[in-house]
């Protein structure tokens, strides 16, 4: 088999195998790039309301929990609670935290939902699982290098690496170099 034919075959099949991983890393890459502007993993909703009955200072923590569950019609069972100050108590449910302030009779309900697809892609992209995934990610990185090399050698002639290709490769290298000179 001629080397160029082998190169094309290699590029094609590695490309197919990498398809899923490239999509995962790209989606997550955009998502975590803007972590200062949004939460890439969760959708957090905050609702504030008043429940005048919680202002009763004689209520025990259990009574307060019962009152809140009833008033907010919460169906999940209470996991645990935490008294952060004499007037403030936090109640934890599955995917929900209720902050109760007896002084102001204000209740803040924080509901946390996974941001579908992003949560999973970020989990893999940021190598949260560690273990075997680390080696899968390493292999993916090697595969990307192979894709870059085999891709650049695929076409001969004027549009290949000896013609237009070399200028585009140079441009691709110049972009990160420019930003390194600017910011590093």
């Amino acid at each position: 088999m001629k080397w160029r034919k082998f190169n094309r075959l290699l590029h094609r099949d590695i490309g197919y195998i990498c398809f899923g991983l490239i999509i995962i890393y790209s989606i997550s890459g955009i998502a975590v790039n803007h972590v200062d502007d949004w939460n890439p993993n969760y959708v957090i909703e905050i609702d504030t309301l008043k429940i005048s009955e919680i202002a009763d200072s004689s209520l025990s923590k259990d009574e307060l929990a019962f009152l809140i569950i009833e008033k907010l019609s919460i169906r999940d069972s209470l996991q645990s609670s935490f008294k952060s100050s004499p007037n403030k108590t936090e109640f934890y449910f599955e995917g929900k935290t209720v902050y109760a302030d007896a002084e102001t009779a204000q209740v803040v309900v924080e509901t946390v939902k996974d941001r579908a697809v992003f949560r999973e892609t970020n989990f893999l992209h940021l190598n949260a699982p560690k273990k075997l995934w680390t080696y899968v990610a390493d292999l993916f990185a090697v595969a990307l290098i192979l894709l870059a090399i085999s891709g650049s050698l695929m076409i001969q002639g004027k549009k290949g690496i000896t013609g237009r290709g070399k200028w585009l490769i140079l441009l691709g290298i110049a972009i990160p170099v420019f930003f390194l000179l600017l910011y590093f």
Binding site: K83, S84, Y92, F93, V112, L126
Partner: peptide
């Protein structure tokens, strides 16, 4: 949360080394 009321302590990890998911709250 501490074993005493109103107290808590922060556990900080190096970014990326450990990622704590939000569903841990209450556990």
């Amino acid at each position: 949360a501490s074993d005493k009321e109103y107290e808590k302590i922060r556990i900080k990890v190096n970014d990326g080394e450990i990622v704590f998911p939000m569903e841990l709250k209450g556990k």
